[in-house]
């Protein structure tokens, strides 16, 4: 008996150590890539580390940062949300057009509800009807964009006086020296990190993405939890749309075109697995910042816009390659 047990535990022990090293390397590889990038950037351009430039980068990523937390939840369950950019546009247009006739305190909540509504559609078809999230959110992506274009008649909408605070108070304002849009992104990040680490909901989201059937067979209701992540993603997308609107002062139906790809890239650079069950809020935030810094360096170096796209794609590939080569392969 003793012999059998030794034989049985020894390979297990080896595997365990291997796994630890790998996951350690993976969680640091996200940070390592980011640090290297920042170092390279500060060598290349003296203005990179200026507080003005840093603030600029942070402001630019505030929208993606907010959306990425919703996307992280969706991806943790093993799904994907392609509708985020369009829902951001819907949020932007809803908010701006409501502000022409309503107060800020009505317009913003209603815009967030619009995002929630789109998320509810996605959540229903994915969680209840068991349709693939890729297809469902692809449909919602064109629906949301379409509604935004219909409502705005394809034109930008100025926020008017009711929205003045968004542009002045919120966008220009700061708390403890942190611009409010950035502070909002950090708040969303903090809440997501808290939920994932310390609540039953967060633990179950991760577990469902890792092995939903085992969770279901423990008597846990899986459907409402999967449903909820799409609603959260919808709300956060609309919120991001409002942040972007505050920045420009104009609601636009073309906000967030291609944004879903940036957000997914950020989550993946942050080491999350598209198969679900793996990913953290902190690494996702670093993924967002990594993408932001890449764009910023190229701007500082006056790399033409078209070239930037190519470089960005290459860097995403390299970053994810580093990630995937340190993750253990799973059948």
């Amino acid at each position: 008996m003793a012999v059998i047990q030794t034989a049985d535990t020894v390979p297990g022990a080896g595997r365990r150590r291997g796994l630890d090293v790998r996951s350690l390397a993976a969680s640091y590889s996200t940070i390592a890539i980011f640090v290297v990038l920042v170092l390279v950037a500060s060598f290349i351009s003296t203005s990179f580390l200026s507080s003005r430039n840093i603030e600029n980068v942070l402001r630019q990523v505030a929208g993606t940062g907010v959306i990425s937390m919703g996307m992280l939840l969706v991806i943790l369950t093993g799904g994907i949300d392609l509708s985020v950019g369009s829902v951001a546009a819907l949020g932007s247009i809803t908010c701006a057009s409501l502000l022409t006739s309503m107060s800020l305190w009505s317009a913003v909540p209603i815009s967030l509800l619009a995002g929630a509504a789109l998320g509810t559609i996605s959540g229903y078809f994915v969680a209840v009807r068991r349709m693939p999230s890729f297809v469902v959110t692809l449909a919602c992506m064109t629906i949301a964009r379409g509604i935004a274009l219909i409502v705005s008649e394809g034109r930008p909408i100025f926020m008017g006086d009711n929205g003045a605070w968004l542009n002045d108070g919120f966008n220009r304002g700061s708390i403890l020296g942190i611009p409010l849009p950035v502070a909002l992104m950090l708040l969303v990040f903090g809440v997501t990190a808290f939920v994932l680490r310390l609540t039953a909901y967060g633990r179950l989201i991760v577990a469902i993405g890792s092995n939903g059937e085992a969770v279901r067979l423990s008597g846990v209701r899986v459907t409402p939890r999967v449903f909820s992540v799409y609603v959260i993603s919808g709300v956060l997308s609309a919120l991001a749309g409002i942040i972007i609107t505050a920045r420009s002062g104009v609601g636009s139906p073309v906000v967030g075109i291609g944004m879903e790809l940036d957000v997914i890239a950020a989550v993946v650079i942050g080491g999350a697995s598209l198969m679900g069950g793996r990913g953290t809020a902190l690494n996702t935030l670093i993924g967002v910042l990594t993408l932001g810094v890449i764009g910023n360096i190229m701007n500082l170096l006056n790399v033409p816009g078209y070239h930037q796209e190519v470089v960005k794609g290459v860097i995403i590939l390299v970053a994810v390659l580093l990630q995937s080569s340190v993750w253990p392969r799973r059948a």
Binding site: T199, A207, N211
Partner: peptide, 29 residues
């Protein structure tokens, strides 16, 4: 395939059935 969430800690796997007991009003564990 059906009994365990392999990647998660032993402790978490043991308490999926009783999680409500370790959750406060805010949903915190």
């Amino acid at each position: 395939g059906q009994g365990l969430v392999l990647a998660l800690p032993i402790r978490q796997n043991m308490t999926f059935t009783t999680l409500a007991r370790f959750t406060n009003a805010l949903g915190m564990l």
